[in-house]
């Protein structure tokens, strides 16, 4: 029987769907929220967040303005506590330790969980002093070690070649994109476990943005990264997993290619296709 079927291939979706693979294939959990709630005064800003982030992954958090994504990421390193009217309930576990417990000081947590902010905020000091700030306050004083740490961090931030001849220049003399990379180097200098990034490229030009996105892919090998972004193409480009927040809830959290190719929840679909928000 001669049966020739001419089949053109349908689009192949590579479902690296970790939700269905055995536990050994998944990376270790690094941050888990359990029924985490947060109020700004009377405003219930985060509602029962249950979310797990894994090692050596880039996880993106997307959602419209006011959905709680910045609030959430600032809860992970307790920076949200700088606002006096904040109240929280529930747990956030960093490697099995509840960060809201008294056993871990907030300084210890923030040393392990670094943060890069939306607007580059280098200190008005020299480039060297900016990067050496972290190690210095943690007791590393000898110049040789500091020199090595500074170089290593600037290399990791992909900016060593641009600044190696002017380490004593004021960091304010650099462009926005360079300043942001200095801030990244500064964060890396204390060798954290995780780097949180709150819209790190939204104030930068496209080329700096691309440099930093490439940088993230390199950093992923040693660190875990959680990034909040309102740029969906960026989330699609850089992240392994994406969480969609809406009105204080996590609507969907899955592999990035699923979120952007075939999301399960209609609200996610409407958001990523730009039908609202």
């Amino acid at each position: 029987m001669i049966m020739t079927k001419e089949k053109t291939s349908a689009i192949h979706i590579d479902n690296k769907n970790l939700n269905h693979s055995p536990m050994e294939m998944q990376n270790k959990e690094i941050f888990t929220s359990k029924n985490f709630n947060l109020w700004y005064g009377d405003n219930h800003a985060l509602k029962n967040i249950n979310l797990s982030f894994h090692e050596n992954e880039i996880s993106a958090i997307i959602g419209p303005s006011g959905c709680g994504k910045s609030t959430y990421i600032k809860s992970l390193n307790r920076m949200v506590e700088l606002v006096p009217i904040v109240r929280t309930e529930g747990e956030i576990l960093y490697r099995d330790t509840n960060i809201l417990d008294k056993n871990m000081t907030v300084e210890e947590l923030r040393t392990k969980v670094g943060m890069v902010f939306q607007k580059p905020n280098p200190f008005p000091k020299s480039i060297y002093d900016n990067v050496a700030y972290g190690p210095r306050i943690h007791g590393i004083k000898d110049k040789k070690t500091l020199d090595q740490v500074v170089e290593k961090s600037l290399r990791q931030a992909a900016i060593w070649d641009e600044v190696k001849d002017r380490l004593n220049d004021n960091a304010y003399g650099l462009s926005g994109g360079q300043q942001q990379r200095i801030c990244i180097a500064r964060t890396l200098a204390v060798e954290p476990d995780i780097v949180l990034m709150d819209e790190p490229t939204s104030a930068l030009d496209p080329i700096s943005t691309i440099k930093i996105e490439d940088l993230m892919q390199e950093l992923k090998k040693e660190y875990s990264i959680i990034i909040v972004t309102h740029n969906m193409q960026q989330a699609a480009r850089v992240s392994d997993k994406t969480a969609f927040f809406y009105q204080g809830n996590v609507i969907e959290y899955n592999d990035t290619n699923i979120i952007f190719e075939n999301p399960h929840d209609k609200r996610t679909e409407d958001y990523v296709t730009g039908r609202f928000g």
Binding site: M232, E261, P263, T273
Partner: peptide, 12 residues
Amino acid sequence: SPVASDLRLIIS
């Protein structure tokens, strides 16, 4: 920059 169902529609 279509994604999700928009992208699937266009490719189809």
